[in-house]
Nucleic acid binder design. Structure first.
Lengths: 225, 225
DNA sequence: TGAAATCTGAAGATATTCTGAAGACGACTA
DNA sequence: TAGTCGTCTTCAGAATATCTTCAGATTTCA
């Protein structure tokens, strides 16, 4: 999962990011409305954690920007206890959930998962695609009922493609989503070739059709045809 | 078990905590609604003992917060004899049980156990998993019917994994649940490795299959396959 | 056909986990 | 209070798993 953490308190921001990373997610950080706006202009996120009270403005602004652009990143609002009005307005603007500060990190993590599940896979823990089966809770991938073992990057890739079936995914979008804002590694896509190759091989070896189609000059598409 | 004791009378609070600790539980204390709110925001509890009459407000408030956050910590309400209305409202808000002051500590302990059991293992004292058997009452673990001796941390770990079979448990979630306060946990997970190693060894030595699977970069999964 | 893009296998670099041993801690006893 | 025991944590090195790089082969497109 790729998650943007918008929070001005550094300690909390880092804590959140560390925890989510430890669970295998990719986190981008933003300490202000400005930074956040910049990030969302550059990347898509599975989920955005948004503190409403930021030094340079109201977090709701960000939501209006997203809404205007018709984007469907998942949003979890973080507020201090008491600011009920903001919270309600936020939900009206399309937030998926909210958390009252202070909160437990595992609580946060669970909600992120719930939202991503709801948005990407229509509430299912089990993502199915013909002979392919993914269980998000246990991070298990099965082909014809037999579990196969994938590395983290392979798993992330597969999940991302499954969530965007039949769409052409550019290599840079792939990098942005799975590696985070590593601007410096865009010079070569060798590592993507390798990961896709390995993923393909593992799936095919397990008896799965090769659903990846290379799109010359752009990236890949994951679809049945 | 991790239990939060919310009680303003110091003597009673300490008595309860001592008793529960002596039985091998982890106890956090809160003397006021405020303290309690802070604690529950930071940690998950297997059970919360909640005195309704607190110096800074009604304990039911806490329950509303929990409910709003959709949490399922077990709750036992403690009330003085007579305050029937509150008690009923509490049960309506999702309390699992209540105790009327004064009560015997052994009675309390039994109810805590009952609730944890009900929540985690659907009413079973005996948790079974193939050749593995745990009796929560007596804290006994048996492999193929032969009892083996585990340290407290090992037992806690095993129980937590059994209660979350087939789910991938991140190391930070593990720390949060079993160690509680370690805020600075990101520095090293060495002690987890060691405990898991020892637990694994004891189980395998007793003739149990190794059900722990390491999930590289995340944590562990406890499952049969 | 030729340049650019992609695929492939192998090897190097990194990161994570495992392990045994030793030190620290705390409860209990004398 | 000192000593003992069992437990918990720390540490350093070994073993593994994963990620990235690279060079050469292959494919694609103009």
């Amino acid at each position: 999962m790729k998650i943007l953490v918008v929070e001005d308190e550094q300690l909390l921001r880092d804590n959140i990011a560390d925890y989510l990373k430890a669970e295998g997610n990719v986190c981008d950080l933003a300490a202000s409305l400005d930074e956040a706006t910049e990030k969302i202009a550059l990347y898509d996120y599975d989920c955005i954690l948004l503190d409403l009270t930021l030094p340079d403005g109201d977090g709701l602004k960000l939501m209006r920007i997203l809404k205007k652009q018709d984007r469907d990143d998942g949003i979890i609002i973080i507020t201090a206890r008491g600011s009920v009005d903001q919270r309600i307005e936020g939900l009206g603007l399309g937030a998926d959930d909210y958390l009252i500060k202070p909160f437990h990190l595992s609580e946060l993590s669970a909600r992120v998962l719930a939202i991503v599940r709801r948005r990407s896979f229509k509430g299912n823990d089990l993502v199915r695609f013909n002979e392919l089966n993914i269980d998000i809770q246990s991070k298990t991938v099965k082909v014809h009922g037999e579990p196969i073992s994938l590395t983290r990057k392979e798993y992330d890739l597969l999940l991302y493609f499954m969530a965007n079936k039949s769409k052409v995914i550019s290599k840079s979008a792939l990098v942005a989503h799975i590696w985070g804002d590593h601007a410096d590694m865009a010079d070569s896509f060798d590592f993507i070739y390798t990961h896709i190759k390995n993923l393909r091989k593992k799936l095919v070896d397990a008896g799965c059709k090769d659903y990846f189609q290379s799109v010359y000059g752009v990236g890949y598409k994951f679809s049945a045809e």
